[in-house]
């Protein structure tokens, strides 16, 4: 045990780590050895788990001398389209890529990614007021494909400052989708497994169809929300729906917190509705075994009469 510590100290010194860093590392190893002994391990067993002194020192030197920023996602510029028209629309088909929509300061659509994209695989086009993006299909898994493609491609689409996006249609399979403080007209999303998150945005009518993907909306204003999910959950927080919310699902849950809407309508098999501070002006829910659990402080329109359920629980707490 002593030799391990002594050897480690020497090996770290050789690699020119600072005295304070070496001191801290040695302290930590000393602690781990002592803890191991207290827990009934033999010295030999403990040291076996650490690895050889040289290997440890080499790894530590790598960590201590590396620049943490070097690992951060670096954005690669892909395309820029300057806009002169007032309105435009977007059509995107990216099966596996994660996509973020954000607002920009220039009156241009700017597309960036976390790595260089192969131009053969992607289409980025702007014509007739329409931005079209098409990505490669998730085709047969060659090992090479796996290593290159599936290492998380993230595409960021920065929307123009002046021109208004009237319509967005986004199709994905596994990719996640994020809306960060954007204003978009009608949003239609088709997804299988990917999740969708929107924060601090203003969106008109949202139509979301998914199998497993969740929908999370926070601090956002929408006109209407229609969700059709098999397993995907819908989570709304601090959100205002000016018109109607329709939630149709098999086993997806709806979790609403600080939400107001004009009318709420839910149809579920086993999906639950859990709500806190949820104030729809009119309300209707229909479930087979899903529960309706509401916690509201003010008067509200959620009644047992309007909750049709076969075996689900209905509970309203003040």
């Amino acid at each position: 045990m002593k030799t391990f510590i002594v050897d480690l100290k020497r090996a770290l010194k050789k690699r020119q780590l600072s005295d304070s860093t070496i001191e801290e590392i040695v302290r930590d190893y000393d602690e781990m050895i002592h803890t191991g002994l207290e827990e009934g391990m033999s010295e030999e067993e403990i040291l076996k788990k650490f690895g050889s002194v040289e290997h440890v020192a080499e790894e530590l030197a790598r960590v201590e001398t590396s620049d943490p920023k070097a690992n951060a996602d670096e954005e690669t510029f892909i395309k820029r389209f300057d806009l002169t028209e007032d309105t435009y629309c977007i059509e995107v088909k990216l099966p596996t890529e994660n996509v973020t929509y954000q607002q920009g300061e220039d009156n241009a659509i700017v597309i960036t990614a976390n790595r260089a994209l192969d131009e053969k695989d992607y289409t980025f086009r702007y014509a007739n007021h329409r931005l079209t993006i098409i990505g490669p299909r998730a085709k047969g898994f060659g090992l090479f494909n796996l290593l290159t493609r599936h290492l998380h491609t993230a595409i960021t689409i920065t929307l123009p400052s002046k021109a208004t996006c009237e319509r967005l249609h986004h199709k994905a399979t596994n990719g996640h989708l994020t809306f960060k403080a954007v204003t978009i007209g009608d949003v239609r999303i088709n997804n299988v497994n990917g999740d969708v998150a929107a924060t601090q945005s203003t969106l008109n009518d949202i139509v979301y169809a998914t199998v497993n993907g969740d929908l999370m909306i926070e601090d956002t204003t929408v006109n209407s929300l229609t969700t059709n999910a098999v397993n995907g959950d819908v989570m709304l927080t601090k959100t205002t729906i000016k018109g109607a919310m329709h939630h149709e699902t098999v086993s997806g849950d709806a979790m609403l917190k600080q939400v107001t809407c004009a009318s709420f309508d839910m149809s579920a098999v086993s999906g639950d509705l859990t709500a806190e501070e949820f104030y729809p002006e009119s309300y209707k829910a229909h479930t087979v075994s899903g529960d309706v659990l509401v916690k509201n402080r003010k008067d509200h329109a959620i009644t047992k009469e309007n909750t049709r359920t076969l075996s689900g629980e209905f509970r309203v707490d003040a």
């Binding site: 602690e31 781990m32 191991g36 788990k49 650490f50 690895g51 440890v56 530590l60």
Partner: peptide, 20 residues
């Protein structure tokens, strides 16, 4: 130590160093 121990139950941590 708890982290190293927990990992060593399932994988060979010896030649891969956890602490770094």
């Amino acid at each position: 130590y708890a982290i190293i121990h927990a990992l060593s139950q399932h994988i060979d941590v010896g030649e891969n160093t956890v602490y770094p």
